[in-house]
Simulated scan of single mutants.
Amino acid sequence: MLTSNGRPVEQPTLEEVIIRRSNHNDSTNAGHRVNHSIRASEVRVISPDGEQLGIMHPNEARDKAKEYGLDLVEVAPNSRPPVCRIMDFGKYQYDQSKKAAASRSTRVQLKTVQLRPNTDEHDMDVKLRRAKKFLEGGNQVRFVMRMRGRERAYTQRWVEHLGELLADFSENYETPINVVSSPRGEGWRIHAIVEPASTS
């Protein structure tokens, strides 16, 4: 292939192609510079076992990583020189994703249970058992009692009613609770928030 000046286009070597592809792929690795994306003139290298291998040029460090059949990963870019560790980067990413998933699964959530001022006994039992299940899962529960029409004229009565309901809940459903937010009226609804007593 010729350029516009009639000169032959210099084709990249196979090694250069591999490096370019590696640089492109490495630049997307969750903020970590990996292998050929490491740009520092020298790096401090740590072995897979945590042994300090010393300060060296990145090319030498990459060669050492190849000897282990692993990747060279920049773990402390702001150090002088940057610190790199020889590791299985794919396994590292997998472990990090598992930790993030575990963190999300253990995060306390706020669940909502909807009530009405005149909820019948059966429906109330179903809703309170649902609240019990949420609390046993370590979550907070927000009780929301919706008022309609003339019910709003008796807001204070329903506030007291929800308070009595929560007072009886712990004993009737054998679920110790702490009241995070006491029952109070806001417009057409009354709400309160409770949590498992063990989280206090």
Rank of each mutant, 00 (worst) to 15 (best):
V83T: 09
A197F: 12
Q93T: 12
I18Y: 05
K99C: 04
C84V: 05
H57P: 03
K132W: 07
R184Y: 14
D88M: 07
M147Q: 08
A131G: 02
A197C: 05
E151M: 07
N5L: 05
I19F: 10
I177Q: 02
I46C: 03
T155P: 01
E15A: 14
D49P: 00
R152L: 10
D120T: 08
R33M: 14
G187C: 11
V180I: 15
H24W: 12
H36P: 03
R189T: 09
S27A: 15
G90K: 14
A153T: 14
D120W: 11
G54S: 09
D95Y: 12
Q93P: 00
A76W: 08
I86G: 00
I18E: 04
K98E: 13
S79R: 13
C84K: 04
V180W: 00
R33C: 09
K91W: 08
P176T: 04
V144Q: 06
F143H: 03
L72W: 06
V43Y: 01
A192N: 07
L70K: 06
N23D: 13
R129Q: 13
K132M: 11
V75F: 08
N29Y: 07
D168N: 15
L53R: 04
D26K: 01
R150V: 14
Q140V: 04
P58W: 08
V108P: 02
P82C: 09
W158P: 00
E174C: 10
S182Q: 12
E74H: 02
R85D: 01
N78I: 11
A30M: 13
R152N: 04
G149Q: 10
F134E: 03
S200E: 10
C84Y: 01
A153Q: 12
L135W: 01
N172S: 11
Q156S: 15
G187L: 07
T13F: 05
E151D: 09
R33I: 03
L72T: 01
P176A: 10
E151G: 03
E151T: 07
V17Y: 02
P8M: 10
D120Y: 11
L14S: 10
L110P: 05
E136G: 08
A101K: 15
D123K: 09
V43M: 04
H122Q: 14
T106C: 10
I55E: 05
N29G: 03
E10K: 11
T3E: 01
E10G: 00
R130D: 05
E164M: 12
Q93D: 06
Q109A: 13
V73S: 01
A102N: 13
